[in-house]
Amino acid sequence: MFCALLTAACSTTRAAAPDQSGPTPLTASAALGDFGTVDYCSLLNVAAVAPGAVAVPTFESCQAARGAQTIRLGPLAFDSDPNIKPYDYPGPVPDGVAVQQSMFNDRSACTRAITFADGNRIDLTVTDTGTDQAARCGVADATVGSALTAITAGKVGRLTFPDRSWGRVAPCVLLDSHDLDAAAGPGSRPTTGLSGHTCIRGKVSLALTVETTPPSAPPEKLGGRDAHVRPAGAFCLVDTTQPAPGLPGRRELAEISVVETAGTANDATCALARTAATSIFPRLPTPGKP
């Protein structure tokens, strides 16, 4: 009787239906984890893509230099870019991911975008002083393949930020001050970037990273720090550096930019940028100081 009852009970159990949901579209958060600590150099197989290149990790990109050629992998972006167009990338791509190209500045650079299912993308650019666009784009496609291989293999590395590193600083906190009302514009509020290392408030932005290009402007004192001021098109840029904790020989960079909405940056734009620097720079941590 017991066996009969058991058999009857078991006969009501049905096998689970096979999973027919298919692959899950890959989002940037699933691929990269915490955006603020991604080591983009872990996505670049230098030996395979650019043998002999020297790669430098910044807070939100990797820059590798080989002679006159530079590979920049990152940052992560979400904004719409009308220059980005589809193209036939020759390698395998995870479900939900698109590889696109940009035609911007295509006489000296080859630009690709790895766009994830959630709309976030990794921008990458290869630049040099030559005229062989096909060779540049070959390196760019190899960089795309390197990044996708590392992502699908779960080999995305993480950055760590020692005490007093500017990688630990929340830039929007530094922009949330009435001292910046005039430079940023009335009623403006800070908005952080995807990585957490950039912030925009109206006409003012602040980026915290690792320096990859030495300054060219003469130094001056702003906010108690050595700073460099230079116009660059519609922007006036002010930067300062400190030795990078944990990266011997490297320097961390804090860069303020103020945009001139009426056209080219001028003396008035740079005066506002200097005012912003005088407010922001003293509140940056300094190695060896409490």
Score class of each variant (00 low, 15 high):
225 R>H: 14
101 Q>F: 11
153 A>L: 08
227 A>H: 05
281 F>R: 01
286 T>P: 00
258 V>K: 07
79 D>P: 00
269 T>F: 07
259 V>L: 09
2 F>H: 07
16 A>V: 14
164 R>M: 04
246 G>R: 08
128 D>F: 06
45 N>S: 15
272 L>H: 09
75 P>D: 12
245 P>T: 05
45 N>K: 13
207 A>P: 00
17 A>M: 11
236 C>K: 02
66 R>E: 02
120 N>V: 13
61 S>P: 03
45 N>H: 12
22 G>L: 12
39 D>Y: 11
278 T>I: 04
216 S>D: 12
17 A>S: 13
173 V>Y: 01
67 G>D: 08
276 A>D: 03
63 Q>S: 15
217 A>L: 08
274 R>L: 04
60 E>F: 12
46 V>R: 07
31 A>H: 06
181 D>G: 04
133 Q>W: 02
12 T>D: 01
266 N>C: 08
151 I>H: 05
41 C>A: 07
105 N>P: 00
286 T>S: 14
215 P>Y: 07
82 P>V: 13
89 Y>N: 11
89 Y>Q: 08
237 L>Q: 15
151 I>F: 07
193 G>L: 02
93 V>H: 03
195 S>A: 14
245 P>Y: 11
73 L>A: 08
23 P>L: 11
17 A>W: 04
188 S>L: 03
252 E>S: 03
266 N>Y: 08
132 D>A: 14
110 C>A: 15
275 T>P: 00
287 P>S: 12
142 A>Q: 15
236 C>Q: 05
103 M>K: 10
230 R>N: 10
91 G>M: 08
255 E>M: 14
88 D>W: 00
234 A>K: 13
260 E>F: 01
248 P>Y: 06
92 P>W: 05
39 D>K: 12
248 P>E: 04
145 G>H: 02
18 P>V: 14
174 L>C: 05
95 D>N: 13
41 C>E: 03
189 R>F: 03
107 R>M: 11
138 G>R: 07
188 S>V: 04
119 G>K: 12
240 T>W: 09
148 L>P: 09
256 I>K: 02
20 Q>G: 12
65 A>G: 01
88 D>L: 13
205 S>W: 01
125 T>R: 15
57 P>V: 10
166 W>D: 01
43 L>R: 09
151 I>Y: 06
40 Y>N: 02
17 A>Q: 15
238 V>H: 01
201 R>F: 05
9 A>H: 04
77 A>M: 14
229 V>N: 02
129 T>R: 14
104 F>C: 00
22 G>H: 10
29 S>I: 11
211 E>Y: 01
284 L>N: 06
250 R>S: 13
200 I>Q: 14
102 S>N: 11
58 T>L: 03
251 R>I: 01
